[in-house]
Each structure stands twice: as structure tokens, then as C-alpha cells.
Design a protein around this nucleic acid. Structure first.
Length: 294
DNA sequence: TGCCAGGCGGACA
DNA sequence: TGTCCGCATGGC
């Protein structure tokens, strides 16, 4: 069964895949130049989907798993959310054009979308794993966690993994994670966050009912292990809030430093000023700045 | 070898 | 409220 999705204006599938790949061999999807394969849980059913581009549309095929009309519909919805297809990027591109020094981004990265991490729990765990270590090591740690504690399905004798569920991580003994080279801090944060999700203390639905981004940020920062960087990262990637800046992010610092030709780390004020013209589109500008790192 | 990595919490003034 | 420090381990 193949689902067809019309591509929105200002969309570039290759740019999106490139952003997902970046040579890190992520354990939660398989990516090639032409397609991406990802296992999903839709309405409690495990399905493996392949997404590719064909004649200006996106095609989604369910490779394995039982599916109903509802599952097809919700798979399509997932892809819309993941690739941020429902957003009109014209206003953002206008802002890029109005700021001469940034207009190169419109041409160079045209059609790049804010690739989401739909699952809030996964997004938070990924942040904790990635805190203060280099990205290649972070991906290796994530792979160890996923392959040791996540469910999987097999297709063409290949295993595709799901991110572990909160109840499973909540029960891991710290010693086990230490053996996988997780620091004591990361272990403590991961298990704590998992407990909150396992007992329903926090859910994405609940968080999305907050009045605005500031309140969501405040709520997230009450969680041990969640600081300003993680809160902003998660709000842009999972809640799709458009007004987030990942202050403290080394990649963001490096990008802003390069574009301003500072030769040093930018101050918080310099970053705030840099983002000022992009009010309401900070998250997208943040993503495009990451992309400009290469 | 030393510094840095898509930070965070806690101590201290 | 702002700043400094320890954590913990791989990559370059």
C-alpha cells in the first residue's frame, strides 16, 4: 500500500534527508540518498515505512505490519509532523532576504524543514545523551541504549529498532548503563525522566496545553537534567514551537561566531541581537544556522 | 597532550 | 541574578 502526499511549496526532500543523516548513522532510521526507512508505532501497531520522492510528491509505503485505514491516515499525519509539511516558509524566507548577510541561506538550503522528534520522551532522552559530549559519541551511546532496551522488527533479515519505552528505562539498574559508558549524571537524568513519563507525571499532550512557550519552558526546566538548552531543543523539535533559541549550544555559538567574524564565542546578548530580526521564526533560523555549519 | 564537545546542577557572592 | 566549578569520556 502506497500513500501519496503532495509536497508543499518550498520543500526539498534531499535537504531534509541530509539534515537527518550528516554521517552519524542514526539507529532509529535507515537513510540513503533516495529514501528513508523508519519503524513507527501507529495506534499501537508496529509498522515499517519507507518514504521517497517521486514526481513532486512524497510516497510512503508500509513495508511490514498490519494496517487499517486509520493507520494509513495516522502514518501520513506522522510524516506531515516529522517533515513539518504544513508550514508556509514564505514569511521566513522573506526575513532571510531582508537581511542581506543571511540571504545566501534561502538559496543554499532552500526547502530544508525543521525535522521533528515527534515523541517528547525520546527527544528529552536524546538531549540528555547529547549533553556536553561530541555528536558521534552521542550517537554511539544512543545506539547502545536502543539496541539493548528497545523493541525491534525485522524486514529482509535486517533489524529496525524503536526507542525504548519509559517503563523499560525506568527499571534499568545504573550499573548496566555505566557498562554502556553512560556517565553517572546521564544515567540519573535518564532514569528520572523515564519515571516521570512512566507514571504519567508529564505527557506531551499536557505540556501542549500550556499557554505559551515560556510556560512550557518553565515546566520542562523543573525536570532534573533539563536546562535551558534541552528545554529549547525539545520545544522546537517535539512541540514545534517556533520561538526557541538553543542558548549555550556549541554549534550555534560557532555558527554565529563565524557569520559575525568574531573569532570568539558570542555573548548571550550578541546571540539575542542576531536573532532579533527573526522574531517568531527563531527555531527555523536556529536550524538554518546549524545547517550552515556544513 | 590538552582542549573541546548540540550542558546541567549546585555553590557562592 | 550572574558566574564559576565538577562531572565524565571520546575525538581531534
Amino acid at each position: 500500500m502506497i500513500i501519496k502526499i503532495e509536497q508543499p511549496e518550498l520543500f526539498n526532500f534531499s535537504e531534509c534527508l541530509r539534515f537527518l543523516d550528516r554521517g552519524y548513522d542514526d539507529c532509529l532510521y535507515e537513510i540513503s540518498e533516495k529514501y528513508i526507512i523508519k519503524p513507527l508505532v501507529i495506534d499501537g501497531e508496529k509498522v515499517l515505512v519507507q518514504i521517497w520522492e517521486e514526481e513532486k510528491s512524497l510516497k510512503i509505503e508500509i513495508l511490514t505490519g498490519n494496517y487499517t485505514t486509520d493507520i494509513l491516515q495516522n502514518t501520513s499525519r506522522f510524516v506531515h509532523d516529522w517533515f513539518d509539511l504544513d508550514r508556509d516558509l514564505n514569511p521566513f524566507y522573506r526575513l532571510l532576504r531582508e537581511n542581506n548577510s543571511h540571504s545566501f541561506m534561502e538559496k543554499k538550503f532552500s526547502g530544508l524543514r525543521l525535522m521533528g522528534i515527534t515523541d517528547l520522551f525520546e527527544a528529552l532522552c536524546w538531549c540528555v545523551i547529547g549533553q556536553q559530549i561530541n555528536l558521534s559519541f552521542a550517537h554511539r551511546l544512543k545506539r547502545r541504549l536502543v539496541e539493548n532496551y528497545g523493541n525491534s522488527l525485522t524486514h529482509n533479515s535486517k533489524s529496525y529498532y524503536f526507542f525504548p519505552t519509559p517503563d523499560v528505562i525506568a527499571e534499568i539498574q545504573p550499573k548496566e548503563l555505566k557498562e554502556l559508558q553512560f556517565s553517572r549524571q546521564k544515567t540519573e537524568y535518564l532514569i528520572g525522566i523515564s519515571r516521570l513519563f512512566a507514571d504519567g507525571s508529564i505527557t506531551k499532550e499536557q505540556l501542549s496545553e500550556y499557554f505559551d512557550t515560556d510556560q512550557m519552558r518553565k515546566r520542562l526546566k523543573e525536570i532534573r537534567g533539563v536546562g535551558e538548552w534541552t528545554a529549547n531543543y525539545v520545544l522546537m523539535k517535539s512541540l514545534k514551537r517556533m520561538d526557541c533559541i538553543t542558548f549555550g549550544d556549541s554549534g550555534l555559538n560557532s555558527s554565529v561566531s563565524t557569520l559575525l567574524e568574531l573569532g570568539r564565542k558570542p555573548t548571550r546578548k550578541e546571540i539575542e541581537d542576531f536573532f532579533k530580526p527573526f522574531s517568531g521564526w527563531e527555531s527555523y533560523f536556529n536550524i538554518y544556522l546549524w545547517r550552515s555549519l556544513g
